[in-house]
Write a protein that binds this DNA or RNA. Structure first.
Length: 665
RNA sequence: GGGCCCUUAGCUCAAUUGGUUAGAGCCGGCGGCUCAUACCCGCUUGGUUGCAGGUUCGAGUCCUGCAGGGCCUACCA
């Protein structure tokens, strides 16, 4: 039976370039898509750029241009990267399209019709000079948790806490530097509670989700009444204005997944067909691939919207983990945060496709890119075993072609054909590493056959020409069969194998019948080996950029006067005692001496970097007039000054000779 | 603190769902071949299945506890 499958990868955000982590998802989805096409199913692979939201708006503003310009440029870059990795979208759209606006409007209308939209007044920060509500990122102030200054209204970059903008201490508008006032804003909410039963049934019993995901949702959201979802954001906001709410825009996560449908609409307009035939057809299957970070948008809000608007629920939501590099999180400073384009400067796309395939299982586990393993798998599996089959047999028959009838092979080809079933099942289950394992077993068997048949000996005896041709016919057929199985993973290599043997490589069933009596082209190099040095080079950090990334992360603060500065009483202090704090993950307790008998007790979050013993006797910079803060472990009287971001911590010390108690001027 | 997942050879993973002696690939060692992109073939070292109990005729698999790792969530900084 021919299935009709609409497959999506999550929409990449137009705020950054595609990197190796993104590619885990797009390569994985593409393998699934190509597999389904090879099996003869009707497939639509839809994707688009996710373009809305404050981050885009702020960045465009910073770069002094329109957001439309920014997202157009990014869309080009994204599509170029995807094309280089053979990602075979049927259509690649944008959430900032008329199609997306239309679909969003119609879904909104349906939600209202069903009484699922609620309007409520919510107090928000309002800039009276500019006469506008301030989005989270347009207001800065002191973090209510750690009191770090200059933090945005949604989250603190210093301590990672998240909070509503209304909780900021001493908030200021980034536009006018005025103190915003609280004012009621009419916000729109999508009410999810009426859909609780539907969502529970779909998440728990439909089989659409991996078991871990179903458990997660049950334990975190579905065990209590689902809360209303705030989907509106006040202007200015780069996105779509809500039709009946002038001055309010849909939150980016409202219209982002709608892009899946809009992309289908655009594709149908171009290629023929009707988007409803994919989205409102119980016989069609919608399959989403996405990373674990966006699980709940796709497993609660999105199906709720689909259901309420009369679309079918996804048949499958396949969630994957993150990419690590050599056991650690990707990191710019370590050079392991590698963009797609940088990868292409050093290595071949096919290598990565195969390596990811050989690592990807059906679970949500993170995937670890290990340099040595990467080199080993590509070189020994692909070049040494698979391609080697062709390169050690093709040239013996390039003049005579394949035998007229497929020769006796003691059942090798038939066993390979039978293995196709299990390989296909593994692909279907997204257990690509299992599929690769099984294919490589076939390649092992084939190489063993070559060894026993020893074509290089047959070649020396003119009487054994027919035997030689038969032997190579078998080997090339096993190679062909293996390459059919690998076509979803390695389309380019597969095409080369097809050219060698005059085979189209576009049907899974071609693995079931041997080729015979046909020409064999001259063998040409099909795949290069990986040089370990190239991998290492790729992961070596580039020379520091002209503008320091640190200064970007924490831009210079607004101008102050000398009087402002003098309000802070900075003193030289000596660390008299230092100790670990029982039960604290990050804190050390310090006793500071300010000269004479003046001592202060301070808790400092520097445990990750400093040992108590190395601190005693050290001179540090002390913020003396900071209001004492009561903490779980005691009262902290001020703080010690330190610099650093992202886990780096550097205590400030005075030059030699400074004495405890001296003030900074 | 709460929840979920995980731990099998040096590394990456299997083990037909509780059934004989826990298997592959890579790496290492030995031998062979010389068609092939230093490739392939054969042999081989390597395990108290994280630890401790329990259920069972039988446990890698089920249960309990402990240790370690990951993720989510909350709190604390």
């Amino acid at each position: 039976m021919t299935r009709q499958i609409l497959v999506t990868s999550a929409l990449p955000y137009a705020n950054g370039h595609i990197h190796l982590g993104h590619l885990v998802e797009y390569i994985q989805t593409d393998i699934f898509v190509r597999f389904q096409r090879l099996r003869g199913h009707k497939v639509a692979y839809m994707c688009a750029d996710d373009t809305h939201g404050t981050a885009i708006m702020i960045r465009a503003e910073k770069e002094g241009r329109q957001p439309e310009q920014l997202i157009a440029e990014m869309s080009d870059a994204h599509q170029r990267d995807f094309a280089a990795f053979d990602i075979s979208f049927d259509h690649y759209g944008s959430t900032n399209s008329e199609a997306n606006r239309n679909v969003a409007h119609s879904i909104w209308a349906k939600l209202k019709e069903r009484g699922l939209v609620a309007q409520r007044a919510v107090p928000r920060l309002f800039d009276e000079q500019k006469e506008m509500f301030l989005a989270d990122r347009f207001v800065k102030g002191m973090c209510p948790k750690c009191r770090a200054p200059d933090q945005y209204g949604d989250a603190c970059e210093a301590c990672g806490a998240t909070y509503p903008a209304t909780e900021l201490i001493d908030p200021r508008s980034i536009f006018t530097d005025s103190k915003p006032v609280l004012k009621d804003s009419q916000q729109s909410f999508v009410t999810l509670a009426p859909l609780q039963q539907t969502l529970t049934a779909w998440t728990q019993d439909s089989g659409a989700l991996q078991e871990e995901v179903a458990n997660y949702l049950k334990g975190h959201f579905l065990d209590k009444p689902l809360q209303d979802w705030d989907v509106s954001r006040p202007a200015p906001y780069f996105g779509f204005e809500i039709p009946d709410q002038p001055g309010n825009y849909w939150y980016v996560w409202f219209d982002a997944p709608i892009g899946y449908i809009a992309s289908t609409v655009e594709w149908c307009a171009k290629a023929g067909g009707d988007a409803d035939d994919w989205w409102r057809n119980e016989d069609a299957e919608v399959v989403h691939f996405l990373g674990k970070d966006i699980t709940y948008f796709h497993t609660l809000f999105w199906p709720a919207m689909l259901h309420a608007a009369g679309y079918c629920l996804p048949k499958r939501v396949h969630i994957h983990g993150f990419l690590k590099v050599n056991g650690e999180k990707m990191s710019k400073s370590r050079g392991t945060f590698v963009n797609a384009s940088r990868y292409l400067d050093f290595l071949e796309p096919g290598w990565l496709r195969y390596y990811y395939a050989s690592k990807l299982g059906p679970k949500i586990d993170d995937l670890d890119f290990q340099s040595e393993e990467f080199v080993g798998k590509v070189n020994s599996d692909l070049v040494g075993r698979v391609v080697n089959l062709a390169s050690r047999s093709a040239k013996f028959v390039q003049d005579v072609g394949l035998s007229e009838t497929y020769p006796e092979d003691s059942g090798l080809f038939r066993r390979g054909a039978e293995a196709g079933e299990a390989i296909a099942a593994a692909y279907e289950a997204c257990d690509f590493r299992e599929a690769m394992r099984r294919v490589m077993t076939l390649a092992d068997d084939a190489n063993e056959f070559v060894e026993r048949a020893a074509p290089w000996k047959l070649r020396k005896d003119p009487d054994k020409a027919a035997e030689l041709q038969d032997c190579c016919t078998v080997v090339l057929n096993l190679f062909h069969q293996i390459m059919i199985y690998l076509t979803p993973v390695l389309p380019e290599l597969s095409a080369k194998a097809g050219a060698l043997l005059g085979s189209d490589m576009d049907q899974w069933s071609a693995s079931q019948e041997p080729l015979s009596g046909r020409e064999v082209r001259k063998f040409t190099h099909m795949m290069a080996r990986v040089e370990a040095a190239k991998v290492e080079e790729m992961f070596t950090p580039e020379a520091p950029e002209p503008t320091s990334p640190t200064i970007d992360k924490e831009p210079l603060a607004d101008e102050i006067t000398i009087d402002d500065f003098l309000r802070v009483d900075l003193r030289v202090a000596e660390v008299l005692e230092a100790s670990h704090v029982d039960g604290a993950d990050k804190l050390l307790q310090l006793t500071l001496g300010l000269g004479g008998d003046v001592r202060r007790n301070v808790f400092a979050g520097i445990k990750s970097v400093y040992e108590p013993a190395q601190l005693v006797g050290k001179m540090v910079l002390y913020v003396a007039n900071l209001k004492p803060r009561k903490m779980k472990f005691g009262v902290s009287e001020g703080m010690v000054a330190a610099a650093g971001t992202d886990g780096e911590i550097y205590l400030m010390s005075p030059d030699i000779g400074a004495k405890p108690g001296q003030r900074l001027h």
